Simulated assay, not measured.
Amino acid sequence: MDSFRGQGGIQMLLTAEQEAQHIVSSARNLKIKRLKQAQEDADREVGLYRSHLEAEFQKKIAETSGSSGFNAKRLEVDTEVKIQNLKESASRISSDVIGMLIKHVTTLNK
């Protein structure tokens, strides 16, 4: 009877060990599955964040390049207006300046 009890006890231990291995294996598989899911979620979030930052970057580039183009055009127009004003002023007073120069060159100072 003791031998039957000993074999039954060993059999129970083997069965318990198999059940424990099954539980541990299931837990490992579940852990691996959760880690993979967490990695996929993290990759998705990183992708969304990266696309959001890229969109903001492209928006800033568009804003700054657009405004610099606008500023360049405005400066070009302002420069043309100033050049035209200088030409008009020069043509108005050029005869007076020429007369004054001729007077100083032809007049003798003692």
Score class of each variant (00 low, 15 high):
39 Q>R: 05
43 D>F: 03
7 Q>K: 05
3 S>F: 09
39 Q>G: 05
19 E>V: 09
53 L>V: 14
63 E>N: 08
63 E>A: 10
2 D>G: 08
94 S>V: 10
62 A>S: 15
92 R>M: 05
71 N>L: 13
71 N>M: 10
90 A>H: 10
93 I>M: 07
53 L>Y: 07
79 T>A: 14
20 A>W: 01
109 N>K: 13
66 G>T: 04
42 A>W: 02
68 S>G: 01
13 L>K: 09
4 F>Y: 11
70 F>T: 13
13 L>M: 12
17 E>Q: 06
8 G>I: 01
20 A>V: 06
30 L>A: 14
56 E>A: 12
30 L>D: 14
71 N>E: 12
65 S>G: 00
34 R>I: 12
9 G>W: 01
13 L>F: 04
16 A>H: 02
77 V>I: 15
20 A>M: 06
54 E>I: 09
32 I>M: 07
22 H>K: 10
1 M>L: 07
71 N>K: 11
69 G>R: 05
1 M>P: 00
58 Q>E: 13
105 V>E: 13
59 K>W: 00
5 R>I: 13
61 I>A: 14
47 G>M: 06
102 I>Q: 12
12 M>N: 07
62 A>F: 03
98 I>T: 10
36 K>R: 12
66 G>H: 05
3 S>P: 01
51 S>R: 15
17 E>R: 01
108 L>W: 02
20 A>L: 10
105 V>Q: 10
23 I>Q: 14
95 S>E: 08
14 L>Y: 04
70 F>D: 08
105 V>C: 04
41 D>V: 04
106 T>A: 06
44 R>Y: 13
28 R>F: 08
88 E>H: 06
27 A>H: 06
56 E>G: 03
43 D>N: 12
62 A>L: 06
31 K>I: 07
33 K>G: 01
50 R>V: 07
66 G>Y: 06
21 Q>R: 05
32 I>R: 10
72 A>Y: 05
53 L>A: 09
16 A>L: 08
69 G>W: 02
82 K>I: 15
27 A>W: 03
102 I>M: 09
28 R>H: 03
12 M>Q: 10
48 L>F: 14
75 L>Y: 05
2 D>R: 15
56 E>S: 08
4 F>C: 02
76 E>L: 04
29 N>V: 02
24 V>I: 13
73 K>I: 09
14 L>A: 06
99 G>C: 03
30 L>G: 07
26 S>N: 09
87 K>A: 09
86 L>H: 02
36 K>D: 07
16 A>Q: 11
99 G>S: 14
33 K>C: 01
41 D>W: 02
41 D>Q: 15
7 Q>L: 09
96 D>A: 13
66 G>V: 03
67 S>K: 11
77 V>E: 14
67 S>H: 06
76 E>A: 14
92 R>A: 04
54 E>L: 08
23 I>L: 09
59 K>N: 10
79 T>Q: 11
25 S>Q: 09
33 K>Y: 10
16 A>V: 03
11 Q>N: 13
43 D>K: 07
102 I>K: 12
61 I>D: 02
42 A>T: 11
32 I>L: 14
18 Q>H: 05
45 E>G: 00
46 V>I: 15
3 S>Q: 12
60 K>P: 00
108 L>Y: 06
44 R>G: 00
10 I>C: 02
99 G>I: 03
82 K>M: 11
13 L>Q: 08
50 R>G: 00
72 A>S: 11
97 V>L: 15
99 G>F: 04
20 A>S: 09
